[in-house]
């Protein structure tokens, strides 16, 4: 029973992080219908930047955290500006292939700099913050990740619901032509969605790194696990991404605990194939409102 609870908590935490990572992915898909295969690399980049700032440069942790997020934001902006903007108006297949190329490029670059080994952060949170829940211990990083995640989630919720720029972004996702006719800066919206997605990815990279340690292969692999998550949740639903993430996280944690760890790596993809077969638009994908 204790084992079960531990797995449950691990799974929920992992799933929450998957959901957060997927959120950035969904944002790019919604605004410009690009499947971003370089998402895992954006995640890894955040984790490694944080590592570099904390251990190499020795900057205090809270400042490093904010600095990393800022750099990730700018990085997303730059990627859009220099790689994706020239392709606006080209067939989508080129854009997607481009992200595949970018993924390979960034991953190689990070491997060249940091190598394929496991790195760890210095202990950031004192173990005394852990919560004892009956027989199960919840490590402080889990709680921290949950708190950070929830803060970001609500911030983005408010941003998209109430701020003008957020509404412009949703309008572009909804009907690009009409948005253009009203003078919405569509290119700026694309750039902004890449920037925000990269920021969110960087953040989840840091939290994942705190929990599991950082390794280029693992982190960029999580970028690919985003696909089962978003297919499960519905490609265009941000809330669905979180719930999809939770389901995948739990599934992975339980298979890892009860069956085998190597299977747990594949289970999300098996689920993906079944979801495509049974409920292709995901659990929470928008039902197309069609007025003819």
């Amino acid at each position: 029973m204790d084992f079960f609870l531990q797995l449950l908590i691990n799974g929920l935490c992992l799933g929450f992080l998957y959901g957060l990572s997927a959120m950035g992915f969904v944002m790019i898909f919604k605004s410009s219908s690009v499947l971003n295969f370089a998402h895992g690399e954006l995640i890894a980049l955040g984790a490694f930047l944080f590592l570099a700032l904390v251990t190499w440069a020795g900057i205090p942790i809270p400042i490093s955290f904010l600095l990393t997020l800022a750099v990730c934001f700018c990085f997303g902006f730059i990627v859009e500006r220099f790689f994706l903007r020239p392709l606006i108006g080209e067939p989508l297949i080129f854009v997607i292939m481009l992200t595949v190329g970018l993924a390979s490029m960034f991953k190689g670059l990070m491997l060249l700099i940091w190598g394929g080994n496991l790195h760890t952060y210095p202990d950031i949170l004192p173990a005394s913050l852990a919560i004892q829940l009956g027989p199960v211990t919840i490590p402080p990083v889990y709680i921290a990740s949950l708190v950070i995640g929830l803060i970001f989630l609500s911030l983005f919720g408010l941003f998209f619901k109430y701020s003008s720029q957020g509404i412009y972004m949703r309008s572009v996702a909804d009907n690009q032509r009409a948005a253009l006719s009203l003078g919405v800066h569509v290119k700026r919206v694309f750039a902004l969605s890449w920037a925000i997605a990269s920021l969110v990815a960087g953040m989840s990279g840091i939290v994942l790194g705190i929990i599991n340690g950082i390794n280029v292969h693992n982190l960029s692999g999580i970028g690919l696990k985003v696909f089962p998550v978003v297919i499960l949740g519905g490609l265009d639903s941000i809330g669905g991404a979180i719930i999809g993430g939770l389901i995948i996280g739990l599934l992975e944690s339980f298979t890892g605990g009860y069956i085998s760890t190597s299977l747990s790596e594949v289970v999300p993809f098996i689920v993906l194939v079944f979801i495509l077969l049974i409920k292709p638009y995901g659990l929470f994908g928008l039902v197309e409102i069609e007025r003819v």
């Binding site: 509404i167 909804d174 009907n175 032509r177 009409a178 948005a179 006719s181 009203l182 928008l286």
Partner: peptide, 26 residues
């Protein structure tokens, strides 16, 4: 210069008021 497109083209998943707010983009 603002054009109102043929065939209406609302933002389907935005509320009426949010739709109107997109008009402030300029």
């Amino acid at each position: 210069i603002i054009q109102v497109l043929e065939g209406r083209q609302p933002f389907k998943y935005l509320t009426i008021e949010e739709n109107l707010r997109v008009g402030t983009a300029t």
